[in-house]
Design a protein around this nucleic acid. Structure first.
Lengths: 264, 264
DNA sequence: TCAAGTATACCACACTGGGGTTATATACCC
DNA sequence: GGGTATATAACCCCAGTGTGGTATACTTGA
């Protein structure tokens, strides 16, 4: 994209600030630098469900799951969501940079990416206010076949600041819809309760915590780093967890817990 | 079960030979020895789709997938199906004895067992004729919570001969419904064609074969034993396969190939 | 005919997961 | 007070994956 064209496209976004077509012009600008198949803008909040603000698909793919499943519970396993909780910098980040080391072994990866046929994603983060972060996820699906190129990513990254600022400006007075979203207790508490109530399995806090990290795709070492304990200890919790659940592999843990997580 | 009662129950099966209630009486007999939650009887043939002959559920579980998916393509990954192709002995066998070593890591295990909530299965095999084998699969689902006991299995196994014989007798003139089932070229050919046509990935015969073994849950060593080649060679095929598919893990192979297999 | 691709085999290494053992300190409940 | 559960940590061993490299033989197409 030449400077003139770039200038014009940026101007278009600025003109659309506060208008309904803002997401569209944002998409148009990005598309001039790096081709994507779909765009979905989600607002994440503290303690309540995320909310979808915009979506655009160029391929006829079923995104019902997004609506019915992802926004209710599946987002709890999403690398982007956890990046926010861990205080991610505003700007552009790629999913595979943020994802835990064993993310691809994950049931979430398998189900979500198979459902959506996505193969790559990068995301523009904007901090709207102290408890709302906005993510604009640009995705490639398997029809395109290839992941985002490094040079293109570098190019779009050079605009990350202005793009984040524009989003923050456009959605500066955004508030989550009242009543529609429910205030939730921390995930680990909910998981523990459900395991107790529905499966008569009483997990210790640590065991529950480790379970959630495993679901997200963290290796034992990665969990150890997150919890500031030794990897041997993590393996102990893992073993206790498997033993209490009468299972003997990670795959079985996924099979056991994923339906529970969907139930929320 | 006492001898008298056993005698009576067996007599009941014999009396139902040739009648519609044969599967029911068979189930009743088995249930007196070993409690199960559901029973499904399937006829497997050479080169054409399997056919469901009977099913009985004690729990309100969705078995649509069985009808829509399993009988069309998913059975290709089923340990029972492969046991038949490898010339399994008639009689009773447990799923986890027949399953490949890495079966539980498998996407098939994950999807199928999560869908059906099954946790254990044993199966009565009967050889109807040279190209039809009948399987009566008795399953436990997660509502029961525990797998079949060893002593109970031993007990039911002592009846395996007579039960197989009774099935063979009852279905001795069974023929697959004409037209309803389609003659199919070997799976590896179909997979290869689809990969070429839809993904522009041309796999060598060996690479395709290895892919299918991986999908079934075989480790590299297990594949090597099956193909009569060294495990190192299997690993090479694996590498080539991953490289051609632009992936870097088994999990991604599942995500890539399972939808294709469903398409058939 | 020659280069490229395919099939075959072997070696070595790092990392993960799963299983087992042992040990100490704390906390909570009866 | 004593037993039980929990959290923590350090070892061991092994099987399996994934990645890198080397080498030979056969086939096939340009």
């Amino acid at each position: 994209m030449q400077n003139q064209e770039q200038d014009k496209a940026l101007g278009e976004i600025v003109r659309s600030l506060g208008n309904a077509n803002f997401p569209e012009t944002l998409g148009n600008f990005v598309k001039k630098i790096i081709d994507f198949d779909n765009l979905i803008i989600i607002a994440y909040h503290k303690d309540i469900n995320p909310e979808e603000l915009y979506r655009e698909y160029n391929s006829p793919i079923v995104y019902e799951k997004m609506q019915s499943h992802y926004l209710k519970a599946a987002y709890l396993l999403d690398p982007f969501y956890h990046a926010i909780n861990n205080g991610i910098q505003r700007g552009i980040h790629c999913i595979f940079d943020l994802a835990p080391d064993q993310f691809k072994q994950t049931s979430y990866f398998y189900e979500y990416y198979q459902e959506t046929t996505l193969i790559d994603e990068f995301c523009l983060f904007s901090h709207i206010n102290h408890n709302t972060t906005l993510t604009a996820c640009f995705g490639r699906d398997k029809k395109s076949g290839i992941r985002f190129g490094k040079t293109e990513l570098k190019k779009i990254k050079s605009y990350e600041n202005v793009l984040s600022t524009l989003c923050e400006q456009h959605w500066r007075s955004y508030q989550p819809k009242e009543g529609k979203n429910i205030v939730l207790p921390p995930v680990k508490h909910r998981l523990r309760t459900i395991m107790k109530d529905q499966h008569s399995i009483s997990l210790s806090p640590r065991q529950t915590e480790v379970a959630l990290y495993i679901l997200q795709g963290h290796s034992s070492i990665s969990i150890a780093l997150n919890l500031n304990i030794s990897k041997e200890t993590v393996k102990v919790f893992r073993k206790q967890l498997y033993s209490k659940c009468s299972i003997s592999s990670q795959a079985e843990l996924f099979a056991l817990l994923m339906p529970i997580l969907s139930m929320l």
